[in-house]
Write a protein that binds this DNA or RNA. Sequence first.
DNA 1: CGAGGTCTTGAAGACGATCAACAAACGTGG
DNA 2: CCACGTTTGTTGATCGTCTTCAAGACCTCG
Lengths: 234, 234
Amino acid sequence: MHPVIRKASPLAALKSEEQGALLRALGPTVRIRAGEDILSDGDRPGVSTMLLEGVAFRYKALADGRRQILSFQITGDVLDLQTYVTRRMDHGVRALGDCKIATIPHAAVSSLIERYPGIALACWRNALLDSAISREWMVALARRPAHERIAHLFCELTYRLKAAGVAEGDGYRLPLTQALLAEAAGLSAIHVNRVLKMLRNDGLATLSKGVLTVNDWEELQRAGHFDPTYLRPD
Amino acid sequence: MHPVIRKASPLAALKSEEQGALLRALGPTVRIRAGEDILSDGDRPGVSTMLLEGVAFRYKALADGRRQILSFQITGDVLDLQTYVTRRMDHGVRALGDCKIATIPHAAVSSLIERYPGIALACWRNALLDSAISREWMVALARRPAHERIAHLFCELTYRLKAAGVAEGDGYRLPLTQALLAEAAGLSAIHVNRVLKMLRNDGLATLSKGVLTVNDWEELQRAGHFDPTYLRPD
DNA sequence: CGAGGTCTTGAAGACGATCAACAAACGTGG
DNA sequence: CCACGTTTGTTGATCGTCTTCAAGACCTCG
């Protein structure tokens, strides 16, 4: 299997004929450096973008300059299939660490989903997984206290990255600053700092110098009320 | 145009031939009373459900019994096209007021989207609109203070219901209790009460006996930082 | 070595939750 | 029609979580 079609991804179910067609439609690989926008709010791209390597995040900017991170995307995710239908991006997508991407012209998307129903279904599945993650995250933002939110986010990222075969072992590279974590969790950076200290002291997880170390996976899941069911599209 | 295919809905762009095919595929109309589940968490329906009349809401229950409302659905929305792909509901959908629904067997969905690409596209558009609303709501839950959240929610509902031609004038029926509003806004019912009092005293909006009256639309939009762009799929 | 980003800690204050009590509205049955 | 229990709405008081302000330590990289 091509490394971009990572295991456990919605694309993994594609027949090899379909995988080949999809990969052939991809344009050249482009490197994006950490912190750069892959897609900006208001863009009207004529292509759809696939994340080949690295971690990126969706975000919205508020009028006063604050930002809210909406979700994280990992290797193998299609970042803006939506622009194929709606044309205009209503949020930005930014590289967390260094990334590699490739694009597919919307016209090629058209003929792919027309010719290969399996690809259309896989894209649909991908979008539904994103929605499921959004729903779970809405509940966390609205109802869970700070330490549960952070624990839950750590669980989700760890689970997804491991399922994708991108992360291994107890500690893995995750170039997330406390400020970014605050923008994801709907908290202030200062409070994130205090929560991280608690998680560290309690021996659950440690985020330091861009490496997330999960010290007690069972307890971390409990702390974040994490149930991975929503990540398995069944 | 059939009243179910309400104006401004993603389905409104369908050719009349496609509309006819869609409507013929619908099963008999079923009445649902206020407060009843249309779909429950964990359901594996063999049909997809369309909301013909009324307002419903998606929700998730937390382990401790609290609930979070994820979104509101109105006349013409397809409630669980997702089960066509993922089979299992990961949240519930409940009737806010009395509703009418009709179902379409998944097999019929299959042949519809196969035969009429326009229907597939409209369904896709419908799903993307839901996602856009989720994103906006995530920002509100994470970053906006209570009165902005409530104002924003009132704006969104008013805008959508008017665009759909379901609500008219400055006051319209919306059987929303303060407790439910709290479950949607991620607040306590008591605080919702105080916020409503403020909105009422400031002459922005009044929610009383299941009727939402918008007293000052311009000011309400400002108070909620409401920009309807995200509701127009372009 | 200096500069900017990141992390850390303390103190004060705001926003919203919780607790407690009561009023008003509503539906039901007597 | 009234008595009632239940749901919904209202208000006050207290408390806790998280924010904001302020300052300093650490780290990395030119």
